[in-house]
Every structure is written in structure tokens, then in C-alpha cells.
Simulated scan of single mutants.
Amino acid sequence: MSALICGSLAYDTIMVFPDQFKNHILPDKVHILNVSFLVPRMRREFGGCAGNIAYNLKLLGGNPIPMGTVGQDFGPYREYFEGLGIDLSRVKVIDELFTPQAFITTDHDNNQITAFHPGAMMRSYENHVKDVPGVSIGLVGPDGREGMIQNSAEFAEMGVPFIFDPGQAMPLFNGEELRAFIEQADYVVVNDYESNLLQERTGWNENDVVSRVKAYITTRGPKGAVIHTPQKSYDIPPAHERRVVDPTGCGDAFRAGLIFGIEKDFDWVTIGRIGNLMGALKVEHPGTQNQRFDFAEFNEQFKQQFGYSL
């Protein structure tokens, strides 16, 4: 079984400002804002929703195929993923553009200033879901607008079950377009803020969404997750982390667990627990792809937390 994960592969440049932004920004002068922050600490991480989900699914022993468009600078990311045995045959390089990248500056209060350059992601429509054989499940994640619409339609036309994960891309779509995504999808996954925004944009309440999909999944950070199905709703408590280092990418780790559990045809409580434990293991490490374990190690953690093995 292969999971086709449509979305961004990106570089995240993360910088730390050893002070507070508010000490250097004059509220009455924001209309002529011109500031510079010295950032002595900086790291560059591999990221992007499709990249993060693929990485986490591979840790579980899954067979992810990330699909996206990248730029001339993708070389280090390619080398890294090829070393992990992740199939990059559906990642297209646009030579005249850069790979998507986020530049994130964080201050001592954990406030963030972020600039995101979409680069080659804006041409994600040049890839086609229908060109990929042997796909058992798909995911349509944050990506270029046209690419997301195309990927969703092609999954539906092919009869491949897929997850709609709008994430940060939700503002790109109006209510009618979001309703079309939901009608085509088998599963919808959002965080609690995105859930409220999705309902506001579509004019559909929770029951309206649930009636159109197999499951409507809402992640709630340290509070766990809620999984609504047409038959029943499940409140899934969080897994226990040993330490909290960096929550960035926890949602993507959860989604990898969701895909893995659906592929294995587990019950919804087990699927939710897999997702929550993936998020907990991620939060213990900085960045989005620095946690290391294999399925046997994950299964042992799962048994310790929930009392049974997968």
C-alpha cells in the first residue's frame, strides 16, 4: 500500500532573537516600521507539510510518496530523503524557482515573525494524482491553490479515499470551494481553530460536515483529539510526553499516525491514540523531522501508554 501525500516540501530557517520584539517596536510608529533584529542563533530544518507527514509515516514503517514541486535548491533535501528510502519520484523540480521556505524569528516570549516564500509550490498543478499508480490512500494538504483543487478532484475521480487537510491554505478558498473539498473527501482533519474557521467559511456546522465524510477529525494540541463519525464521536485523550521542546510539526506527525491507522483498518480510538502518540514523540524534539524511532520502538511506547500492542 502506498500513501500519496500532496503538499509542500520546504526549508524552515529558524532564528532566535534573544530579547522581546516589543522592546524594539514603537506602537505609534508602526506605519513607518523599519527594524532589524540580531539573531545569533539560527538553524535550518527540512519541513513542509508533505515532507513532515512522509517522514513520520516512514518512521512507522509506512510507504509514503510525497508529491509536490520544488526548486533548484532542493538537493540537500533530496539527499536526506533518499537516504531514508522515501520515494521522491513524484517530486518535480522547477529549475528557475526556489524550494518553498519559511523564515521564522522567535523572541523570548515565543512571539514569532514569519516570512514565507512559496516559490515552486505555486506550480504544484503541474503534478497529477491520476499519474500515480497503486495508491491506497491520499492526502491533500496545504499547497498551491490550483494544485489542491486539482488533486482533490482527481482523487475523487479515481475513487481513491483521501484526507482533506486545508491547514494554512484555508484562506485561499471561499465557502463554495471548501464545501466541494469536503464533498469529495473521505476524511477531513483540522485543528480546533481551523475547525471553527471551516464551519464559518462553509456555513456548515459540525453535523453538516460529519454527514458528508467517514470522519471529521479535530486535533486539540495538549488536549488530544476528537474524532466525529456519522455513527459516533470519540474523545481521544492526549498521549504523555516526557518533555516539551518544540510543538512545531506535531500536527503533521498526528496526520502520519492517522494515515497509518486508516491503512491498517484499526478502530477509531486506536487511530486517535496513534496520532496523539506521534505528536507527543515529536514535541520532545526541536524541528519537525528530528525524532528517531522504528515501529517496534513506537509499538512499545504505545503499549506502555495504552496497555495493548498494535
Rank of each mutant, 00 (worst) to 15 (best):
D87S: 05
A54W: 07
L60G: 13
N63I: 15
Y234Q: 00
R243L: 09
G175N: 04
I5L: 15
L26Q: 12
G75R: 11
N127Q: 02
H24Y: 06
P238V: 15
G48W: 09
L139S: 00
A180Q: 13
E157Q: 11
W268R: 04
I163A: 00
H117G: 09
G7N: 01
R201N: 08
F260C: 11
D28T: 14
K130V: 15
F21T: 14
L198G: 04
I259V: 08
Q231G: 02
Q72E: 15
R292L: 07
H285Q: 14
F164V: 01
D208T: 08
I259Q: 06
A156S: 10
D252T: 07
E300W: 02
F302L: 10
R44A: 11
G83E: 06
V269A: 07
D246A: 04
L57M: 06
F260A: 13
P222M: 02
G71T: 11
N23I: 01
G203D: 08
R292F: 12
F162K: 02
E200W: 04
F302W: 10
K29V: 09
I227C: 01
G83R: 09
P66V: 15
I5H: 03
F37M: 11
G138Q: 03
H24M: 01
Q301G: 06
G48L: 05
V213W: 07
E96H: 00
I137E: 00
D73L: 06
Y187S: 06
N52K: 12
K303W: 12
E146C: 07
V93W: 01
G85H: 05
P76S: 14
P171L: 14
A169D: 08
R243K: 14
A54F: 13
L197R: 15
T229P: 08
P222Y: 03
G85C: 09
G224L: 13
